[in-house]
């Protein structure tokens, strides 16, 4: 039992991080909190990948004279991409949040639902239409 727990220790932690982040993404009402959760969620996955790359006794995957076993370089490469994706998504999301705050005056999901329900289904304002009138 202890072997299972310790042998895959990194994996358990990544699962815990993912669950924390995932929970924040779907259950938190604050839009910024959701994005915080999203970051944690994604770093969880990154932890998974990087843990895959580790080999017992392996060294940094840079070829030197030592020649010992090297760690797997591929997940590192993939995770460089994933980090960039993560920060890009965060940037877009935050830009959206700024816009949302400007037009709603709040960044709480449930408050926005309340405001929207008072909005009704308005017609899309059309410049052309107004010129015809």
């Amino acid at each position: 039992m202890i072997e299972i727990i310790l042998g895959k220790y990194n994996y358990w932690i990544y699962i815990a991080l993912m669950m924390i982040g995932f929970y924040a993404m779907i259950a938190k009402e604050n839009l910024v909190k959701k994005i915080l959760g999203m970051n944690i969620f994604q770093t969880g996955v990154i932890l998974l990948y990087v843990s895959i790359s580790k080999v017992s006794g392996g060294t940094v995957p840079i070829i030197w004279d030592k020649g010992g076993p090297y760690d797997n370089p591929l997940p590192h490469v993939l995770m460089l991409t994933a980090i960039v994706v993560s920060v890009s998504t965060t940037a877009v999301a935050l830009a959206l949040i700024v816009r949302i705050y400007k037009s709603y005056g709040t960044i709480e999901d449930d408050q926005i639902v309340v405001i929207n329900s008072h909005d009704g289904d308005k017609e899309i304002p059309s410049e052309k239409a107004s010129t015809i009138i």
Partner: peptide
Amino acid sequence: RLNAVDVAFTEASVG
């Protein structure tokens, strides 16, 4: 610690 130095760089700067 996991020998992923490139990822560590990126995480420290980007993350």
